[in-house]
Design a protein around this nucleic acid. Structure first.
Length: 637
RNA sequence: GCCCCGAUAGCUCAGCUGGAUAGAGCAACGGACUUCUAAUCCGUAGGUCGUAGGUUCGAAUCCUACUCGGGGUGCCA
């Protein structure tokens, strides 16, 4: 059902996208160039590098298609009258071939210069965009981007919080890929350290007691994880309170016993960790079991979510174990790390809290591992940009680690530049009580349950809308609709904000939702299916001239032309939600067009061909944008 | 205490880095299916952009203070 007719088509007449100038596609870019020239001529005192044209799309049709807001700031700087300056700029402005002539009548308000594009210019731009790359220009020597995604922990099921690092992280990676960058995904799996040793210890104990663990599931591992965590957690605070307030003596004794038990468990876990770290065969074997069970489940969920995260991207904390001691020694030798209160720390300018990289007892911490990760990602994987798609609560941690890595020079690329380290943080998923979802004990809201519920709801709707559909088609479409709904819900809001988890909102199929976008694509494909049934000749539509006489046609065309700059914008800011708004606006513009402009019903062959081509191009841009978000489309729904 | 983030329609959210009358979706109300898929479209109604100052031709957007909410803060990850 997932088809890619977009890629099946062959385009022979415009494959040379690399040499193509983007300014021929984006009218805003063309206007930018023309305005720059005019401003330079009108205000020679302004250094060319400082010229800003402030070209934006106009909000209201009466102000034309675009406007330049350049006159006001320049007038301020040179103490001129903005409207007079605007008049002077348009004297030097040449918009021939792009827009209608600019006269004094185009100057409005405090000095806005309004621009109305020539219909032919829009058509030409659309034509220039109508190629396989859809107007996106790939850089000659693309940088390498390493994107940190997913980041699950061993022995734990993925919960809704993992949706974010997986789905948003993958979308950021896809955005960079779409820009032509070389992208390497890395999943920093939490597979090392004391918590895992606890589970290993517990499993070995159970196995020694004669229990068969061959059919162990992740769900069982998950509850075991919770149990051993609780068992090792000493309730010292409660004891202190009882001692201070003077509670029941019996309670105090009981608590003391529990603390002793917890300490014993903790000691066992610690020695198990030592055994694991030194390669003890049994420990490693059990650890591997836990790893396999967790990662099998995790990667199958990643696949179900249509992310490109696979086994080869797993780079767990355990893979850094042999790199930590040499790294710490290097930092000591170069006096970057110093001892403080028994711990080894790196102190960085502007950050009060020191970065602790070795505990008093000699153990390493997650900052140590993350330093090693930066080093590997930059020097070994060749990352020019390293993006971390991780919870916002880690912001201080990454601030510290980035600064420490910089101080140590671990962020130096092979070319000798400083790699760009970005924490593309996202907000927490909250429960109804406004607390992070995972803190709700007993509530088993894991990711698989969410996805299953989404599919169940989608299936009901698909069945309702398509009573005659076959069982297998319905299953495929329901799955696609459900994933589109869930992913779009997570991707479409500003990633930094927290949100309260709400099934009904996340699984809505109407309005600004994933299914709405799929629906727009489905309506386009339906037109082409129908055209084939009617034996309408489609062979010439690829070169049909666009004619954009209807307002909804022009609006759709202008929206399409924004695509290349939007990809760049969303990619560079690591904000998939910007692409989401664009896709929604585009689908909206298409829906309005669909309503007002009959395609196949139109008897004028020229108009029909133009509209068919517009539909085709819209379909490809929508599909391409959705693919960039990691949302596959369907043929019907 | 200190640091970071957030606050926009009844609800959920956009707002392209300072532009013209602050936009969508849901919910409400009124229209549009014998028509290329109505999971749609068109319209009506809904706002002191947390509060108070400041910066300037112009502020939801920038600066300051405060209020509320969330998070972090030397040996967990």
């Amino acid at each position: 059902m997932m088809d890619d007719w977009t890629n099946d088509r062959t385009y022979t007449w415009l494959m040379s996208t690399n040499t193509q100038n983007q300014t021929t596609i984006d009218p805003a870019a063309t206007l930018d160039t023309r305005f720059k020239e005019a401003i330079h001529a009108a205000v020679p005192d302004l250094p060319q590098s400082q010229i800003q044209t402030h070209i934006t799309a106009s909000r209201q049709p009466k102000f034309g298609d675009f406007q330049s807001n350049c006159a006001m700031p320049i007038a301020k700087r040179f103490k001129m009258q903005p409207r007079e300056l605007a008049a002077k700029i348009i004297e030097h402005l040449d918009v021939s071939g792009v827009a209608e002539p600019i006269t004094d009548a185009n100057i409005a308000g405090p000095g806005f210069i309004n621009v109305t594009l020539l219909p032919d210019a829009i058509s030409e731009s659309l034509g220039a965009m109508d190629n396989k790359q859809l107007g996106i220009v790939v850089p000659d020597s693309p940088p390498t981007v390493v994107v940190d995604v997913c980041g699950v922990n061993l022995a734990k099921q993925m919960h809704v919080g993992h949706l974010r690092s997986t789905v948003i992280g993958d979308a950021i990676a896809r955005l960079y890929e779409r820009m032509g960058y070389k992208v390497i995904r890395q999943s920093h799996v939490g597979d090392w350290g004391l918590p895992i040793a606890m589970v290993v210890e517990q499993l070995i104990t159970i196995e020694d007691a004669g229990e068969d663990l061959s059919s162990l599931t992740l769900s069982e591992l998950n509850s075991m994880y919770k149990k051993v965590q609780a068992a090792c957690k000493a309730e010292t605070k409660a004891l202190e309170l009882i001692q201070r307030v003077g509670g029941h003596a019996k309670a105090e004794i009981e608590l003391n016993e529990r603390i002793a038990d917890a300490n014993a468990s903790l000691e066992k876990a610690k020695s198990r960790l030592v055994a694991l770290q030194s390669g003890d065969e049994r420990s490693v074997q059990v650890w591997q079991r836990i790893y396999d069970i967790t990662m099998n489940a995790c990667l199958s969920t990643c696949k179900r979510l249509h992310t490109k995260i696979t086994d080869e991207h797993s780079a767990g904390e355990s893979t850094y174990r042999d790199e930590l001691a040499p790294l710490v020694q290097d930092l000591i030798d170069r006096k970057i790390a110093i001892e403080d209160e028994g711990a080894l720390v790196v102190q960085c300018d502007g950050i009060k809290e020191p970065t602790i990289i070795r505990k008093r007892d000699g153990g390493f911490l997650y900052a140590t591992t993350d330093l090693a990760a930066i080093k590997r990602r930059v020097s070994k994987l060749g990352g020019d940009i390293v993006v971390y798609c991780v919870d916002s609560r880690q912001s201080l941690h990454f601030k510290q680690v980035f600064a420490a890595a910089h101080k140590a020079g671990y962020d130096k690329t092979q070319a000798g530049n400083d790699a760009t380290l970005v924490h593309a943080m996202f907000g927490t998923v909250l429960g109804d009580d406004n607390k992070p979802l995972k803190s709700r004990s007993g509530e088993n809201l894991n990711l698989t349950d969410l996805l299953d519920e989404a599919v169940a709801r989608a299936s009901a709707t698909v069945a309702e809308k398509n009573p005659d559909m076959s069982e297998s088609d319905r299953a495929d479409i329901s799955e696609a609709v459900a994933m589109a709904a869930v992913k779009y819900a997570d991707l479409s809001t500003e990633r930094i904000k927290d949100y309260v988890m709400n099934f009904d909102r996340m699984l809505a199929f109407e309005g600004d939702t994933g299914p709405y976008l799929l629906y727009a694509v489905v309506r386009i494909r339906s037109i082409f299916r129908k055209a084939n049934e009617l034996n309408i000749d489609l062979s010439n539509i690829e070169s049909a001239p666009f004619n954009l006489n209807e307002p909804s046609e022009k609006a759709l065309a202008l929206m399409l032309l924004r695509y290349p700059s939007l990809i760049k914008n969303a990619g560079q800011s690591c904000e998939p939600n910007r692409l989401c708004s664009f896709v929604y606006d585009l689908a909206s513009a298409y829906s309005a067009f669909f309503d007002k402009c009959p395609v196949l019903k139109n008897n004028d062959e020229q108009v029909r061909a133009s509209r068919l081509r517009l539909c085709d191009l819209t379909g490809r841009v929508l599909t391409d944008a959705l693919d960039t978000l990691g949302i596959p489309t369907v043929e019907r729904m």
